[in-house]
Computed example of a mutant assay.
Amino acid sequence: MLSREQIIETAIELLDAGGEGALTTRSLTERLSTGSGAIYYRVGSRDELLDAATETVVTAALAAKPARATTTATPEDEIRTVALALFDAIAEHRWLATRLILQLVRKPFGPVTVGIFERIGRQVGALGVPRASWFDAASTLVHYILGAVSQHARIDGDTSTVEPDRAEFLDATAAAWQDLDPEDHPFMHAIVGQINEHDDREQFLTGIAVVLDGLTRLG
């Protein structure tokens, strides 16, 4: 018997393969060998299915635990763990970043937004941030995390079908920066040699460290 979980799992597979455009009633019913009525009955509309797929992936990411034992994990450990889990989830599911932003903006009361804020927010208090600043502090962290990882999103309207090779893309970017007038763009010339050396995850963690350092100064 077709289950809700099977429908969501198949929807995620289609989204991973081709983005939101690949998730149609026809593609889903063909993959599951069922009718549209069965899908609507168990999950609902396409938007509800996208929400369910997003919630499934995010819930799994939020279940991540720090490498060190829970009893010795610091608030910083917990925040880095959930931040990296979301980073990796979006790297694996390129459609997810856009859906996360939509959830944050349109459904701040929904399970996805609430789940992220709850996991991050508990650690904000543990960092010693004054209670009156909890909302601002948690929002700053969540907005940084989602903003930083959104660069991995599939952009609506982008008709390209081939993902650029990372090394080639960075080489081309470095070459373009190098061609800029050094008098008008001294900073870009100063960092051009660093673009090929950077690691996306390490860069992301550096940003987390900067935000956390600022939050601890609120106490």
Rank of each mutant, 00 (worst) to 15 (best):
S150D: 04
V149F: 03
G157L: 01
R154N: 15
E183R: 14
W177H: 03
E163D: 11
P164C: 01
F169D: 10
R166A: 08
L141N: 03
R166D: 08
Y144R: 09
H189M: 08
D165I: 02
P186E: 05
A137K: 00
P186A: 01
F135Y: 10
H152K: 14
I145V: 09
L146C: 07
A175N: 05
D181P: 05
L170S: 06
D181S: 12
G147V: 01
H152D: 13
A174M: 05
L170A: 13
W177N: 06
A167N: 14
L180M: 07
S139E: 01
H152G: 06
F169R: 14
V149S: 05
I145G: 00
D184Q: 13
W134Y: 14
V142S: 00
Y144A: 09
T161D: 07
V142C: 07
A148T: 02
A172P: 09
A138N: 00
L180F: 13
P182L: 08
A175M: 05
D171E: 09
Y144V: 09
Y144G: 09
A167C: 11
D184N: 07
V142K: 02
V149L: 08
T161K: 14
T173R: 11
E163W: 08
T173H: 10
P164F: 00
A175D: 10
L180R: 03
Q178A: 12
F187L: 11
E183D: 15
L170G: 10
S150P: 04
P164A: 00
I145C: 04
A190H: 14
G157M: 06
S150R: 00
H152I: 06
R166G: 06
V162Y: 04
H185D: 04
E168S: 14
D171C: 04
P164E: 03
R154D: 14
F187T: 13
I155M: 07
P186Q: 06
